[in-house]
């Protein structure tokens, strides 16, 4: 059971870690080939992963796509979420900042986790009901 959980976790987190790894390698190469300071490139890699990959990828976990598709389709979805969300927050509260973007990312991740937990619980109860009926 523990193995299954770990497999499930790695299945969901490995793609996003791989994407972050590619960005880190990109930052290294940028610093090495273009002589650009590494620290801002590293923060850039982290910023891109956090803002443009994480929220969309979290939502894409709710759909039946493979890891590469989730990652790639998740990027424009993140951009839409950050953009549309901030635009409305701007209209409602009069200003936006780093916090509003972080809030939107956290909300997306939280929503995705809650939805997945809910759907896995309902799946489990359906299986139990079926097992009970078969008995």
């Amino acid at each position: 059971m523990k193995m299954k959980k770990w497999q499930l976790l790695s299945c969901k987190f490995l793609p996003i870690l791989t994407a972050f790894g590619i960005l880190i390698i990109g930052a290294f190469l940028g610093a090495f080939i273009e002589s650009v300071p590494f620290t801002p490139l590293l923060s850039l890699a982290f910023g891109i992963a956090f803002l443009y990959i994480l929220p969309g990828y979290s939502i894409m976990l709710l759909f039946d796509f493979d890891a590469v598709e989730r990652l790639i389709i998740g990027i424009p979805l993140s951009i839409a979420i950050i953009g549309v969300g901030n635009s409305w927050l701007n209209t409602i509260f009069g200003s936006i900042n780093a916090f509003t973007s972080v809030l939107l990312v956290v909300l997306c991740v939280a929503f995705s986790i809650i939805w997945q937990l809910k759907s896995s619980q309902s799946k489990a109860s359906t299986i139990r009901e079926n097992e009970h009926q078969s008995l």
Partner: peptide
């Protein structure tokens, strides 16, 4: 159209890299 500048502004706030750079990136 504000979706894209909002995104590059968010990246600017988050990374501290100047907006002139994040917009192009």
């Amino acid at each position: 159209p504000r979706i894209l500048p909002i995104n590059s502004a968010a990246l600017t706030w988050f990374t501290g890299i100047p907006a002139y750079q994040t917009a192009f990136i």
